[in-house]
């Protein structure tokens, strides 16, 4: 798995690295499986992956619970602001979740837009078991 750089470009980590490269404000990006496992992540060296995974699993769990309490069957997106920055969640097919973190001054709307585009590519990747297709309108299409 990637740690601070792109490995396995064309797979999940490649897509996450693309997202990070496109949205310069994204500090970390990860895909969480329905069971709470970290499928792929771009984390700086030295980051405790297990703790990171446990925390974002907890966050996704609360988001699902809150969505159910408010009449939905799940959440599509969640935006959480703390003093240190933002944590953004976008729900993927099959109960998976795309998670990113940003600094406090990030343009969150833009990051969410890129996450939505990446979602399509991630879903295609998992659906085909291959790298993303070219007609997805993915994050590579937005110029920085």
């Amino acid at each position: 798995m990637a740690e601070g750089g792109a490995t396995g470009v064309g797979g999940l980590e490649g897509l996450l690295e693309n997202l990070r490269a496109l949205s310069g404000e994204v500090t970390t990006a990860a895909v969480l499986s329905a069971g709470g496992d970290l499928e792929a992540a771009t984390l700086p060296p030295g980051v405790d992956r297990e703790r990171y995974s446990a925390m974002i699993t907890a966050l996704a769990g609360i988001a699902r619970r809150t969505a159910r309490e408010n009449g939905g069957s799940g959440f599509a997106e969640a935006r959480i602001r703390a003093d240190e920055g933002y944590v953004l969640l976008v729900s993927l097919e099959g109960g998976r979740t795309l998670v990113t973190t940003t600094g406090p001054d990030a343009r969150v709307g833009l990051v969410l837009y890129d996450m939505r585009n990446t979602r399509r590519e991630l879903e295609q990747t998992s659906g085909n078991g291959a790298s993303a297709g070219s007609e997805t309108g993915g994050p590579g299409e937005r110029k920085q």
């Binding site: 030295g46 980051v47 405790d48 990171y52 925390m55 907890a58 966050l59 609360i62 003093d83 944590v87």
Partner: peptide, 15 residues
């Protein structure tokens, strides 16, 4: 508050 507390931890871990 629960969301923010956990988000703070995520951001802290992520550095």
């Amino acid at each position: 508050q629960e969301f923010v507390d956990i988000a703070r931890k995520v951001l802290e871990i992520a550095g």
